[in-house]
């Protein structure tokens, strides 16, 4: 029986090396391109004719956009308007990557820590740069909670710095762990169906039990795919809010 981890293997389609770095075209790259194409199609179908009374596709695109606008407005406030395109792109890209990973024979790009950490590291660097550009040295006030008695600062400041540095890790590990764990579970339960069927005798009649479990897990995984994309975008908003408004 195939290992449940086989689905995460990266295969190279063409070898390519740019300035000594391995930049081969892999299945991860392919599925990122598929996701980009799907998003483009979705947006194109929705915005082909922008009617005053929206059709179905336009209503879907507008609904998604309103959802992100509401989220950014709620978490960052009016100063966050400039970041709506970024959050919208990030949310849609992760959502589509998560969802196409659930199709049979596809590859889940977000189940690789390298990918999710690249997202999180970009967001972390962005937050620091925006904070320093907007507030200069005042950005360091983020590590000093207001109204702290000064003897406690010796303890609080290192804690705040560690808490800040742990953000990109929690952000990336959360998405990666959820996607990986879910896909392994699905594969293991689906494997039980085959092994029970192959066992023969009375055991073969038990095969519907893991089959039902697989279907139930699949529905749960659909929910997890959407929820994790939402959580990633929400936490990006919260982190950007700290850099823009200097609040805890």
């Amino acid at each position: 029986m195939a290992s449940p981890l086989e689905q995460f293997a990266i295969t190279r389609y063409t070898d390519l090396s740019v300035a000594g770095l391995d930049a081969s075209f892999t299945n991860a790259a392919l599925f990122m391109m598929v996701a980009t194409g799907l998003i483009w199609l979705f947006m194109f179908a929705g915005l082909r004719q922008s009617a005053l009374v929206p059709g179905r596709w336009q209503a879907a695109v507008e609904g998604l956009y309103e959802f992100i606008v509401g989220m950014v407005h709620e978490n960052i406030g009016p100063k966050g308007r400039a970041f709506i395109p970024f959050i919208f792109t990030l949310f849609l890209f992760i959502l589509v990557l998560n969802l196409i990973g659930l199709l049979p024979f596809s590859f889940t790009v977000t189940s690789h820590l390298a990918v999710t950490f690249a997202f999180a590291a970009l967001i972390f660097v962005m937050c620091v740069v925006i904070g320093v550009v907007r507030h200069g040295f005042h950005f360091l006030e983020l590590f000093v909670p207001p109204n702290t008695p000064w003897p406690l600062l010796i303890l609080i400041v290192p804690i705040e710095i560690i808490s800040y540095l742990s953000r990109p890790l929690t952000l990336s590990i959360r998405l990666f762990a959820n996607m990986t764990a879910g896909h392994i579970l699905l594969k293991v339960f689906a494997g039980f169906v085959i092994s029970l069927g192959a066992a023969g005798g009375a055991l073969a009649f038990l095969f519907p039990v893991p089959l039902v479990m697989t279907v139930a897990f699949f529905i749960l995984e659909l929910l997890v795919a959407v929820v994790q994309a939402y959580v990633f975008a929400l936490l990006t908003c919260i982190y950007l809010n700290d850099s823009i408004n200097l609040s805890h």
Binding site: I162, I173, V224, V231
Partner: peptide, 10 residues
């Protein structure tokens, strides 16, 4: 899923 990671990673 958001809270589970906080303590471990920090």
């Amino acid at each position: 899923t958001r809270y589970a990671m906080e303590i471990a990673v920090a």
